[in-house]
C-alpha cells in the first residue's frame, strides 16, 4: 500500500518534470511566434516575475511565511550587481552571484528576529523592515541616494549582459531564471526540507511534535528565497539599465513579487508562472493603454483584477487545472 502510494507520488513527480520540459520548450520557441519589441518585452517581464514570485513562493508558499518585504532582497541584489558593474567593471554574472549571496544573508538575518513573530505580526514586520531599507537607500549618498544608478552601456556582449538591439537575449536569460526557480521548487517539493516546510505551514504544533525544528527550517527557507530574489533583482537592473530606491525597494514591488504566486496558486509549482502570465500583461497593457491619457485607470484595472482573482479563486488559477485533473481521475475510475 505504502509502496503503491510511493510509486504514484514518484510518477506524479516525473509527470510534473515532463510537463516542465514541454512548457520550457514552448516558452523557448515563443519568440518565433511573437514579433514586435513591445510584446517581447512584456514576455520578458512576465518571465522575470514568474521567477521572482517562485522565489517568494519558497518562503511564502511552501513554508507559509507571508513576507511583504521581498523588495529588500530584490533591491540588495540589484544594487550589488549594478554597483560592481558600474564602479568595478565586474561582469553581472559575478554581480548576481554576489548580490544573491548578500540578499540570502540579509533574508537570514531578517529572519532571526522576525520568525519569532506569528501571523500578521510577521507580515507587518517584513513591511516595516522593507520600508526602512527603502528610506535608508534614498538617503545613502554612496549608492546615489534617491537619484539612483544608471547603468552605462559597456558594449553588446554576454559578458556584460547588455544587448543594444534586441530583447531576444533577455528572453532566454529570464527564461533560464524562471526555469531554474521552477526546478528549485520541484526539488524542494520532493525533498525532506519541502516536507518539513509544508508541515510547518500546515500545523506548527504537530510539526514540532514530529521532531521538525521549526526555527532553522524557516531560516533556511528565507535564505534560499532571499538569495533567489536577489539574483532576479540583478537581472532586472541589467535589463532595465536603471535602478533607484523607488523601483528597487518599494512596498509596491514587494506586493508585485508576491502577487503572481498568490493569484496563480500559493505553494504550487505552476502558480507563479500562471499568475505572472495573467497579471503582468494586464498591468503593463493597462499602463500602456490608459497610462498617459487618463492616469489612474491603469491602477483601477490592476486593483480590480487582484480583488476579483483573489475572491473568485482563493486556491489560485491552478485550481482550474486541478478541477479537470480530478474529474479525469474520477472518469478513469
Amino acid at each position: 500500500m505504502v509502496e503503491r502510494a510511493g510509486r504514484a507520488l514518484l510518477s506524479r513527480r516525473r509527470r510534473e518534470l515532463l510537463l516542465g520540459a514541454v512548457v520550457l520548450a514552448l516558452l523557448a520557441a515563443l519568440p518565433l511566434g511573437v514579433s514586435g519589441a513591445y510584446l517581447r518585452g512584456l514576455i520578458v517581464l512576465a518571465l522575470l516575475y514568474a521567477g521572482l514570485s517562485q522565489a517568494w513562493n519558497i518562503l511564502g508558499g511552501y513554508c507559509g511565511q507571508i513576507s511583504l518585504g521581498h523588495a529588500l532582497y530584490f533591491g540588495i541584489g540589484a544594487y550589488t550587481s549594478a554597483l560592481l558593474f558600474t564602479r568595478a567593471g565586474l561582469s553581472p554574472f559575478i554581480g548576481m552571484f554576489a548580490g544573491g549571496l548578500l540578499s540570502g544573508l540579509s533574508a537570514f538575518l531578517v529572519g532571526i528576529p522576525c520568525f519569532r513573530l506569528s501571523g500578521h505580526y510577521y507580515a507587518i514586520a517584513t513591511i516595516v523592515i522593507g520600508m526602512m531599507a527603502a528610506l535608508l537607500a534614498s538617503n545613502w549618498d554612496f549608492i546615489n541616494a534617491a537619484q539612483g544608478i544608471t547603468i552605462p552601456f559597456h558594449g553588446e556582449a554576454w559578458r556584460n549582459l547588455q544587448f543594444r538591439t534586441a530583447v531576444l537575449p533577455f528572453h532566454y536569460v529570464m527564461l533560464v531564471y524562471a526555469a531554474l526557480m521552477w526546478l528549485i521548487a520541484w526539488v524542494i517539493e520532493g525533498s525532506r526540507w519541502g516536507f518539513y516546510w509544508r508541515a510547518v505551514k500546515d500545523d506548527v504544533t504537530a510539526a514540532r511534535s514530529l521532531g521538525v525544528s521549526i526555527y532553522p527550517s524557516k531560516l533556511a527557507a528565507a535564505a534560499i528565497s532571499g538569495a533567489a530574489t536577489g539574483i532576479g533583482g540583478a537581472l532586472y537592473a541589467q535589463y532595465v539599465g536603471f535602478i533607484d530606491p523607488e523601483s528597487a525597494f518599494d512596498l509596491s514591488l514587494s506586493v508585485l513579487i508576491a502577487l503572481p504566486a498568490v493569484v496563480g496558486g500559493i505553494g504550487t509549482l505552476w502558480g507563479p508562472l500562471l499568475g505572472a502570465a495573467v497579471l503582468i500583461p494586464v498591468q503593463q497593457l493597462s499602463v500602456a493603454w490608459f497610462g498617459s491619457a487618463a492616469g489612474g485607470i491603469d491602477l483601477m484595472v490592476y486593483g480590480a483584477l487582484i480583488m476579483v482573482l483573489a475572491l473568485s479563486r482563493p486556491e489560485g488559477l491552478v485550481s482550474f487545472f486541478h478541477g479537470r485533473a480530478r474529474q479525469e481521475a474520477v472518469d478513469h475510475g
Binding site: 507580515a123 498568490v262 489612474g296 491602477l299 483601477m300 483573489a310
Partner: peptide
C-alpha cells in the same frame, strides 16, 4: 490581505483619475 491591497490600489487609481 490581497483583496484589501487590491482595493487600496483601486482607490488610489480612482483618486488619480
Amino acid at each position: 490581505i490581497f483583496t484589501t491591497f487590491g482595493l487600496s490600489i483601486f482607490l488610489v487609481g480612482l483618486a488619480q483619475l
